[in-house]
């Protein structure tokens, strides 16, 4: 593990660097602050820091002094049929003021209904009606927070008979109408393509790739559906799979070096293991940063 001094320029930058980052886990606070590992950025789930005080804020404040930060929301329910929760939006705004993260992202999903919070990222049909509502919500979020947000493509296990849009077209239209960016979750793309019998490269090309502002990589678990077909579960509980690294390579060919997060939320290994996995992404990113542009390399 290498260590380095704080780099104030990247800490103050307005965008995440096109480097590898890791999700910040409380179990790793001490080790990170003691060793200041060479990483492009950290990402936190916004909701975990919506607490009054204590060790979480203490650690994040110190880590933020050394690293760029991505704030990733999981509870805003942008795909919900009900109105956005103004109190939750205000809590997000307060966190953004406090930590000045380089990026804010949320999901194309719903997480609450009728005042009940389900703590999962739930799927929505892709129709003209849901498109209009998602765009209204993204507009409202961007207006309230005074910044552009990134919207993450989902991992899903079911499709809706009512859907009239393909997922990639739906997301491209949201990006076109709202001006939001795309958080390209390559694991979600792989999981959804396997689960719904889609071609991953075709689905990748259908997404609005010129709007990508960050990439997520993660591991999945494997189950089977009622017909015995593979059903991949977006578990964030395993290393990034080979198929996902291959799809990441294909994505990088298309979008160039992008800030890339290794997500791990379950069965969290020692920090050094996550750092080694981040290096696998970093190696690809640094090769891209130093390579000649394709038109000159030919």
């Amino acid at each position: 593990m290498t260590t380095m001094n704080a780099r104030p320029s990247s800490v103050q930058a307005t965008a995440l660097p096109a480097r590898a980052g890791l999700g910040l886990k409380p179990a790793h606070f001490g080790e990170i602050l003691a060793t200041l590992p060479d990483l492009g950025f950290f990402e936190v789930h916004a909701e975990n820091y919506m607490v009054p005080g204590g060790p979480f804020h203490h650690a994040l404040t110190r880590i933020r002094e050394h690293y760029p930060l991505s704030l990733h929301g999981v509870g805003l329910s942008i795909g919900g049929t009900g109105p956005l929760d103004d109190a939750h939006l205000e809590r997000l705004a307060a966190l953004l003021r406090r930590y000045e993260p380089q990026s804010f992202s949320e999901h194309l999903a719903w997480a609450s209904h009728g005042g009940v919070f389900l703590y999962d990222l739930l799927p929505l049909p892709y129709t003209g009606e849901t498109l209009r509502r998602v765009c209204e919500h993204v507009d409202a979020v961007q207006e309230h927070l005074g910044r552009r947000m990134l919207l993450e493509n989902p991992a899903t296990y079911v499709e809706f008979a009512a859907s009239s849009w393909a997922e990639g077209d739906f997301i491209a239209e949201v990006v076109r109408r709202t001006g939001c960016g795309l958080l390209l979750d390559v694991n979600n793309l792989h999981v959804s393509c396997v689960n719904h019998g889609r071609d991953a490269l075709a689905c990748l090309d259908a997404l609005p790739l010129d709007a990508v502002g960050e990439i997520h990589l993660a591991g999945f678990a494997m189950q089977q559906d009622a017909a015995g077909a593979p059903l991949l579960i977006d578990s964030h509980g395993a290393p990034v799979a080979q198929a996902v690294w291959a799809l990441y390579d294909a994505a990088l060919e298309r979008v160039g070096a992008q800030p890339t997060l290794i997500e791990r939320d379950n069965d969290i290994p020692p920090f050094a293991v996550l750092l080694a996995e981040a290096k696998l992404a970093e190696r690809r990113l640094s090769a891209l940063r130093t390579a000649l542009p394709p038109e000159l390399a030919a």
């Binding site: 389900l118 703590y119 999962d120 739930l122 049909p125 296990y157 079911v158 499709e159 809706f160 008979a161 009512a162 689960n195 719904h196 019998g197 889609r198 189950q223 559906d225 009622a226 017909a227 077909a229 059903l231 579960i233």
Partner: peptide, 29 residues
């Protein structure tokens, strides 16, 4: 109602993934 799977399999077993995720994550917490 209204859930489908690309291979025509029973969507109930796919929906069960969501039910399991929701309940297990709350119980784990």
């Amino acid at each position: 109602a209204g859930l489908v799977a690309w291979n025509g399999s029973d969507p109930a077993s796919r929906f069960a993934v969501y039910r399991n995720n929701v309940v297990v994550s709350l119980v784990d917490a």
